[in-house]
C-alpha cells in the first residue's frame, strides 16, 4: 500500500485568545481509495488524539466534514486519498472565509447567518400560486440537494475579498424560493437580492460550480436570479445596467462598444471615478474607439431580437424529475 504524508494545519488559540497556526506532518500507509476522513480517524485514534476535526454522517449527507483538502474545499468523507495526493502529500486546512476555532474546525455561524439573511422559508403573499403543476418544480429541484456544507462559500473568490458578500449557498437558496410557485413574495425577494453585496457582486468565476459536492451549481442559480430581477425591473445599479447595455450594443453595432459601455454602466459619476484608470489606459493608447467596427449582417440580429421579443422562448435549464427508486 502507498504511504501518504498528511500536512495538516494545526490551529490553536493561545492564552490571549489569538489563533496560532502551524503545520504538522504525519505519515500513513493507506489504500488509494481510503477516504480522507478515515485517514483522519486513524491519525486521531493511533497517532495524535489532539487532532480536531468535525464529522458525523460519513456519507456526504450532513456536510460537517468540509475542509480544505489539497487546495480545494471538499468533504473529507467523500474524497479518496489517492485522488488528492500530490507526490504522496495531502495538505489539510480548515475551510477559508470563516473563523477558525481549532485545527480543522471552523465556526459555521457566520455562514448560516448569511443564509438566514435571505429568509430561508416560504412566505405568504400575493404571488403565491394557487395551483401547482408537476413541472412547477423543475427550477426548485436544481438547488434542493444543497446540504449547507459551505464548500462553495469557502472557495468563493468574491468571499475571499468581501466580508459583505452573501455568498453562493445563500443565493442558491434564494433562487429555490424565488422559483417556488408557493412563494408569495418573489418580487420583494428579487428587490432585496438586487442590493449591494447580493446577487450582483458575484464575479461569475464558476468556482462554486466546481467545488460543490452535490452539483448544486450555485452560479447557474445566480444567473437565473439576475435574469428574473431584471425582468421585474430592478435595473438600477452597475451590474444590471452593464448586463442591459450588452444587448443594446450587440444589436446596434454587432460588437460591444467598450467606450459607451463604460458610460452606461457606471453613469456619469462613475465615469469620472473611472477616469483615473481611463487616463492610465490612455497613456498606452488604449481608449476604445466610440465607433467599433460593424460586423456583416447585423440586421439579422435585429430581426432575431424582434422575433424573440414577439414570441419569447423558454431556454432555461430544467432539473431532471426526481423519481424515487
Amino acid at each position: 500500500m502507498p504511504v501518504y504524508t498528511f500536512r495538516i494545519q494545526r490551529n490553536q488559540k493561545n492564552a490571549q485568545g489569538t489563533l496560532e497556526s502551524r503545520y504538522q506532518e504525519y505519515t500513513l500507509e493507506l489504500n488509494e481509495t481510503t477516504t480522507v476522513l478515515n485517514a483522519l480517524e486513524e491519525l486521531k485514534g493511533n497517532q495524535d488524539g489532539t487532532l480536531t476535526f468535525r464529522q458525523s454522517c460519513r456519507s456526504a449527507i450532513c456536510g460537517s466534514c468540509a475542509m480544505k483538502i489539497s487546495g480545494r474545499t471538499r468533504l473529507a468523507c467523500k474524497t479518496h486519498v489517492g485522488s488528492v495526493a500530490r507526490d504522496g502529500v495531502i495538505e489539510l486546512a480548515p475551510m477559508a472565509n470563516q473563523p477558525v476555532l481549532k485545527d480543522l474546525v471552523i465556526d459555521i455561524g457566520p455562514f448560516f447567518r448569511k443564509v438566514h439573511q435571505i429568509k430561508p422559508y416560504l412566505e405568504e403573499g400575493p404571488e403565491k400560486a394557487t395551483t401547482v403543476e408537476r413541472s412547477s418544480y423543475d427550477q426548485v429541484n436544481h438547488v434542493t440537494q444543497c446540504i449547507m456544507c459551505g464548500c462553495c462559500y469557502s472557495d468563493c473568490t468574491m468571499k475571499e475579498v468581501s466580508e459583505e458578500f452573501i455568498g453562493p449557498a445563500a443565493l442558491a437558496k434564494a433562487f429555490r424560493f424565488v422559483s417556488d410557485p408557493r412563494e408569495g413574495q418573489k418580487t420583494a425577494r428579487l428587490q432585496e437580492l438586487s442590493e449591494p453585496g447580493m446577487m450582483w457582486s458575484c464575479t461569475r468565476c464558476a468556482m462554486c460550480i466546481d467545488s460543490c459536492p452535490k452539483d448544486v451549481k450555485p452560479m447557474e442559480a445566480i444567473v437565473k436570479l439576475r435574469t428574473r430581477g431584471m425582468q421585474k425591473g430592478f435595473v438600477d445599479g452597475p451590474g444590471p445596467r452593464h448586463a442591459l447595455a450588452f444587448h443594446q450594443d450587440i444589436q446596434k453595432w454587432g460588437d460591444l462598444n467598450e467606450f459607451t459601455l463604460l458610460q452606461r454602466t457606471v453613469g456619469i459619476l462613475g465615469s469620472i471615478a473611472e477616469l483615473g484608470t481611463a487616463l492610465h489606459l490612455l497613456k498606452k493608447g488604449k481608449i476604445p474607439s466610440p465607433f467599433p467596427h460593424q460586423a456583416q449582417g447585423v440586421e439579422q440580429l435585429q430581426k432575431i431580437y424582434k422575433l424573440l421579443e414577439q414570441n419569447p422562448i423558454d431556454v432555461e435549464t430544467k432539473a431532471k424529475e426526481v423519481v424515487p427508486e
Binding site: 444567473v223 431584471m230 448586463a243 450588452f246 450594443d249 449582417g297 424573440l308 423558454d314
Partner: peptide
C-alpha cells in the same frame, strides 16, 4: 459576420437571444 458573443451579461439579460 461574427459579432460580440454577449459575454456573461447577455445570458443574464436576454437568455434566448
Amino acid at each position: 459576420q461574427a459579432t460580440c458573443c454577449g459575454a456573461v451579461s447577455l445570458r443574464e439579460s436576454k437568455p434566448a437571444f
